[in-house]
Amino acid sequence: MSAETVLPREPVFVARGLTKVYRTGETEVHALRGVDLDLAPGEMVLLLGPSGSGKSTLLNILGGLDRPTSGTVSFRGTDTTALPDAALTEFRRRHVGFVFQFYNLIPSLTAVENVALVTEIADSPMKPAEALALVGLGDRLNHFPAQLSGGEQQRVAVARAVAKRPEILLCDEPTGALDSRTGVVVLEAIEAANRELGATTVVITHNSVIAGMADRVLAFRDGHVVEERRNAARRPPAELSW
């Protein structure tokens, strides 16, 4: 994308002082208690932590699905927390690719159509078949979700996320519902997308084994980043197992 050439090493995201408080009746839940974060272009960051530690909330705010109670998120200089809903939709449509724990494929569309769903509304997408080939599903284009295994469904979801050549790829527990071997295949697909497309990638997991494949690992607890670690070198997912 043209923006990358103009601002090569500027952070894609700059988040400052993010807090998120959910009010349910009388009780207040502090999901985020002041998070600062910079994400560099092409970087792969892993968010690690137990459930309820606030990592999904952070991801949702970055992806424009949710708004912080206080603090700012700047995407390439634009404060996304101040954007109206329609602009947030536009932001997701143009810049963000999502992968979810439960795949969230459209059951009435085939694999290639699920990918086409996104490429049809993107600016300069790859061909749906190309995206599926990238995740190793070049031969299952015309299968419906009900005819695919869990791992295959998740790889379709990855293909769907990367087909629009997003600047940001957000993955929430992409291997959470998969066994180790299938999970590795999915991680390889994510890693390939990150490497080949240069998309800034954030992966949520509570599985610390995966940490080796990232550039940077942020450990979450109780709404804070409690530890930040940089890997000198990324390990290929094939070497991982759990």
Partner: peptide, 16 residues
């Protein structure tokens, strides 16, 4: 609901 919300997440507008 789940399918439609997914589409919203993927960047489809309310109208779409």
């Amino acid at each position: 609901a789940r399918e439609l919300a997914t589409l919203r997440v993927l960047g489809f507008t309310r109208f779409e």
